[in-house]
Design a protein around this nucleic acid. Structure first.
Lengths: 204, 204
DNA sequence: TACCGATACGGATCCGTACCGATACGCCAG
DNA sequence: CTGGCGTATCGGTACGGATCCGTATCGGTA
C-alpha cells in the first residue's frame, strides 16, 4: 500500500508526477489530524494546515479538492487494527488486553472521535472513512476475539451479551469524558471490563 | 454572576430591567440549542441566532456577553432530571424504564452531547453548564434508583458493577452512532440493558 | 427613558483561485 | 549509462468574495 496516486483524486487521473513524498504526505496527514484533535474539525482550516506544515494552500488544494476529502484521506492513511494483534489464549485475557489497549489509545483516538463526531453526520465520505479506518477494523477484531472464545467453549454462543460487547467497550470510552471530565485510561477500562463485561459473559 | 431576580432564570446582565419576557428568552435558548444540534457548536453564530429569532445581535450581546456564556445559559435553562421521575418499585423495572426514557430522548440530547462534546473541552463554564444541566441530575437520579435497589436487597451493595451502570447507559447512547451510524432508540437501549446491565446485577 | 430591533461599520479570518520564480523530476539524446 | 533539457509541481503570495465578530448608532415603543 505504498502511497502512489492510487487513491489520490488527481486532475483527470492522468499521470501525475507529484513531488510529494510519502513522508511529506504523512506530515500533512499528521498535522491535520492533530489540529482536529486540538481545535475541532470545524476550526481546522486549510490555511492552518498549510502554515503548520510550511506548504502552500495551492498544494493542498491540488492534491485534495476539499477539506472533507483531505481529512478522509488522512483518516484512511491512519487505518489500523490494534485489537487484531491480541491473542492471549483465553477470552478473559483477550478482553483484558483489549481494555488496556483501548485505554491507551483513548487520548488520541477518542479525542478524534469526539472532534469528528458531528462532522461525520453531515459528510458521508468522511463518515465512511472514519469507520473504515478506525471503527470497522477494531469491531471486526473484537468479534474475532469473541468468536474464538465461543469456539473454545468459554462462553455460550447464544449469550445475548455477546452482541453488545463492542458497544460496551466503545461506550465506556466515550462516556467517561462526559461523566467525569477526563479521558478513559487503561486502568479505568480494565476495571470496567472486569466489573461489567467479564461477569455478564460468565468469566472469572 | 450576581443576579437580582434570582427567582426566575433572568439574564446575566444584573442590574438591567430587561423587556425580554421568559417566553422570549426561551425562543432564544431553543433556537441556539437547535442550531447547535443541526450545525454543530462552532458553526453557530450570534448572527444566525439573531436572524432566526428576529432579534438583533445587540440584544444578544447585551444579555450575554459571549457565545459560550449564551450557550451555557441556554443549557442551564433546559436542565431536567428525567430519570428522577422513575420509580416502578423494582430495580429491574426502573432500569428498563430508564432505558426506554434514555432511548426516547437520545435524538435530542445525544445529538447535543455530540455537538458540544469538543467545545466543552475548551471552555470550563460551558462544560460545567452541560454537566449541571444534563449530566449530573440524571446521574444522581440513576444512583438513587440503584440505591433503592440495594436498599430493597435486590442487588449486593458491594457489586462492583454498580459503579459502572451510569457509564453503561450513557456509553451505549454515545456508542451506537459510531458503531452503527444511527442514534440509539428505546428498543435498542432496552435490549442492551436486558442483555448486559441486568444480568451483571443478578437481575432476571 | 431605557430597552428593543434594525442597520452600518471596521476588523479579522478563511475560502478557493491565480500568478510567480525556483526546483526537481521524467525523458531522451548522446 | 549518463547528462541535460523541458516542464510540471513546488512554496510563497496576492487577490476578491464571503462571513462573522463586537460595537455603535438610530428610531420606535412600552
Amino acid at each position: 500500500m505504498t502511497s502512489q496516486d492510487a487513491d489520490r483524486p488527481g486532475p483527470a487521473g492522468a499521470s501525475r508526477r507529484s513531488k510529494i513524498t510519502p513522508e511529506r504526505e504523512r506530515e500533512f496527514f499528521d498535522a491535520v489530524l492533530e489540529q482536529i484533535r486540538t481545535c475541532g474539525y470545524d476550526a481546522v482550516t486549510m490555511e492552518g494546515v498549510a502554515a503548520s506544515t510550511r506548504c502552500s494552500k495551492s498544494t493542498l488544494y491540488r492534491q485534495w479538492r476539499t477539506k472533507p476529502q483531505f481529512v478522509a484521506a488522512a483518516l484512511r492513511s491512519s487505518a489500523r487494527a490494534r485489537f487484531a494483534l491480541i491473542d492471549t489464549g483465553t477470552l478473559a485475557g483477550d478482553l483484558r488486553e483489549a481494555a488496556r489497549c483501548a485505554g491507551e489509545w483513548s487520548p488520541k483516538d477518542a479525542t478524534l472521535f469526539q472532534a469528528l463526531g458531528h462532522a461525520v453526520q453531515q459528510d458521508r465520505e468522511l463518515a465512511q472513512a472514519l469507520r473504515e479506518a478506525l471503527v470497522d477494523p477494531e469491531i471486526a477484531a473484537l468479534k474475532e476475539i469473541l468468536r474464538r472464545g465461543v469456539e473454545r467453549g468459554e462462553v455460550d454462543a447464544d449469550n445475548p451479551a455477546l452482541e453488545y460487547v463492542p458497544a460496551q467497550i466503545f461506550g465506556v470510552l466515550r462516556a467517561r469524558p462526559v461523566l467525569e471530565g477526563c479521558n478513559a485510561d487503561p486502568d479505568y477500562v480494565l476495571r470496567f471490563v472486569e466489573a461489567a463485561v467479564l461477569p455478564v459473559l460468565g468469566l472469572e
